[in-house]
């Protein structure tokens, strides 16, 4: 079945002028982006020139941070551990609170839509508020100290874990649930024996993931007075003790890395 060359000519006659599609939308998109950038640059007076000249200043700051004042390590060890404690308690309480809410939100558990939709909306609202804002508010209510930081992390973790978990519940295999319903299980039994075994590894994994995020968060909560290592960082910077600040930052990095590493190993075993 050979195609003769002449069909090309007939095709050409059928489509005499192939006009490339105009890319107005694409061009418009880039133009809008550039216009926005220029407007932003004017508004904040941040120009590319400043960006380039600003970086060397950062370099001189880094020079002031070395050598670190290692003797300060013994002073900051306690607050550093407090930071980890804040993260552990905040994550756990947030995770526990998240369980019932996740169950309410999951659409496949057939709980009334009048419950699940508002519950989801509240979750979305909570997740729009950054952890540091929660901390600032709780410090105002409960006073300076780790308790306010812990509460901030409770709310913050609650939003993340509940969302991830209800999505995991919605993704579980419906087979066991149907089998349970078929043998006449009630809603509680359904959740205990149908949902929990499938969703629990995911929940644990999210809990650990949130813990990793929270350790980072807890390290800065002190900047608004909510306990932990951040308070000392703020003080060191306020007194221009950059050698001490660098010790705090380095220790924070080490702790964060160690916890990330451990948590990643456990998570890999869970899933």
């Amino acid at each position: 079945m050979k195609t003769p060359v002449s069909t090309s000519a007939t095709l050409k006659a059928a489509a005499p002028d192939l006009i490339p599609p105009r890319k107005y939308k694409q061009y418009a998109g880039w133009l809008v982006l550039i216009a926005v950038l220029i407007a932003c640059s004017i508004r904040t007076e941040v120009t590319p020139y400043q960006l380039i000249t600003g970086l060397p200043q950062m370099g001189s700051l880094l020079r002031e941070m070395f050598p670190p004042d290692w003797s300060y390590l013994s002073t900051i060890w306690g607050p550093m551990m407090e930071t980890v404690q804040i993260a552990i308690l905040g994550t756990t309480l947030g995770g526990l609170l998240a369980i019932p809410v996740a169950l309410l939100c999951a659409s496949n558990l057939a709980i009334s839509r009048y419950v699940s939709l508002p519950a989801r909306m509240i979750l979305n609202l909570i997740r729009t508020i950054p952890d540091l804002l929660f901390a600032a508010i709780f410090v105002a209510v409960f006073g300076i100290g780790p308790f306010a930081g812990m509460l901030a992390l409770v709310f913050f973790s609650f939003g993340i874990i509940a969302k991830l978990t209800f999505e995991a519940i919605e993704a579980i295999d419906p087979g066991p649930l149907e089998a349970m319903t078929a043998v006449g299980a009630n809603r509680m039994q359904l959740i205990m024996f149908g949902v929990v075994p499938q969703a629990l590894p995911y929940f644990m994994s999210y809990l650990l993931y949130t813990f990793e995020v929270n350790v980072r968060a807890a390290a800065v909560l002190g900047l608004v007075g909510a306990g932990g290592i951040g308070l000392l960082l703020d003080r060191a910077l306020g007194l221009f003790r950059y050698d001490r600040a660098s010790v705090i930052i380095l220790l924070t990095l080490v702790i964060v890395l160690v916890i990330d590493y451990g948590s990643t190993i456990i998570r890999r075993k869970l899933l």
Partner: peptide, 23 residues
Amino acid sequence: VFPEIIVAILFIKAVGPGSFAGV
């Protein structure tokens, strides 16, 4: 690994407070 707030504080010390440090 650096939390952005810590980066922000360092930049505030380096270039002064304001939007520029935030960017």
